[in-house]
Amino acid sequence: MELLCAERVSPSTEGAAAPAPGPRAAVPDPVLLRRRVLDNLLRTEERYAVTTNYFGTVQTEITPHMRRLVAEWMLEVCEDQGCQEEVFPLAVSYLDRFLSICPVGKSQVQLLGTACLLLASKLREPGSRCLPADLLVFYTANSITLADLCSWELLVLSKLKWDVAGVTAHDFLPLLLSRLPLRGLVNTNMVHRHAQTFIALAARDYEFMLYSASTLAACSIAAALRGLSLDGHLARLHDLTGIDLDCLHTCLEQIEDMVQHMIEERPVSAPNGQSREAAGWTPPPSQDKAHSNAATPTDVRDVHF
């Protein structure tokens, strides 16, 4: 019996410091791109969808403007901490699901958003790279306490019945992109990143709240393709998802209007974050950002129209 080990290891320089271990992500698995995975997601997404507008019914104190302010703050935290792109949409999904069933006061909205960020980062960040609770408290300018955050984390879990493995629009992107005839026409990675940007921007606006995750994903892909002067393939996306074609057209127009409005009105940012400092923004404590290469891509200026 041969017991010779044929494993090859990369040579290391003697005396050199070992690199800091980073978060380990799973390699792409082609099995996860099969049609049955897409069908399962299409069936499952209904369980996590918000089907009614909760403003004026469940929520008597919260307004769409308050929701947008909290969502923009959540997005800024994710951007600043280099979170995985799935964290922010999942946190907003928790926020909407909670607000659709439980009334919240004005003073509790940011606390709810913070608890949703904590839960989403625990679920979607690799390894132990989730957002620390004390850092989230710092981002609220210490307007909440650690005890408040822990108690609201349990409250959100109980109201959502511990069903937090939600389906987001990001889950549909690779499944839909792999089934579009794009080979040789465009860089699919660029389309993927632009679609991620549109999903993150749309998550801030309550007008996109009632769209299903698959609808938002399909229309974000179509908007990214049309922004690159290509066919949006709405007919093919309709065949893949079974979503009504008129609904896809409506959502696509809303996304394009949103992006165009941002391009026209977004001020030019000062270099090195000077605008945030001038506005009184306080940077977080220094810490190791070993996963800074995985950041939420939400700079609309990177989208080429």
Rank of each mutant, 00 (worst) to 15 (best):
E2A: 12
C5P: 00
R8C: 08
S10E: 11
S12R: 13
E14G: 11
E14N: 08
P19H: 00
R24A: 14
P28K: 02
L32E: 10
R35M: 11
R36V: 15
R36S: 15
N40Q: 04
L42K: 13
E46M: 14
E46Y: 12
T52G: 01
T52C: 02
N53H: 01
Y54T: 03
G56Y: 06
Q59N: 13
E61A: 15
I62T: 10
I62E: 03
I62P: 00
M66V: 05
E72V: 12
M74K: 03
M74Q: 05
E76W: 04
E79Y: 02
D80Q: 12
G82Q: 14
C83R: 05
Q84D: 14
F88N: 01
F88H: 06
R97V: 05
R97M: 06
F98Y: 07
I101R: 09
I101D: 12
G105C: 15
K106S: 13
Q108E: 15
Q108K: 15
Q110E: 12
L111G: 04
L111W: 09
L112I: 05
G113L: 00
L119G: 08
K122W: 02
G127R: 09
P132R: 10
A133H: 05
A133D: 14
L136K: 15
L136Q: 06
Y139A: 06
T140D: 08
T140L: 11
N142W: 13
N142L: 09
I144W: 06
D148I: 00
L157M: 13
L160R: 09
W162C: 14
V164Y: 04
A165L: 15
S178C: 14
L180F: 08
T188K: 10
V191D: 12
A202H: 12
M209I: 07
L216T: 03
C219V: 08
I221N: 03
A223M: 09
L225R: 09
A235C: 01
A235F: 02
R236Y: 04
H238V: 09
L240D: 00
I243N: 03
L245A: 08
H249F: 04
C251T: 01
Q254T: 05
M258R: 00
H261P: 00
I263H: 02
E264C: 03
E265G: 00
E265R: 07
A270W: 14
P271C: 01
N272Y: 13
E277T: 14
E277K: 07
A278Q: 15
P283H: 02
P284I: 02
A290E: 15
S292V: 12
A294F: 10
T296M: 02
T298C: 04
R301M: 11
R301L: 07
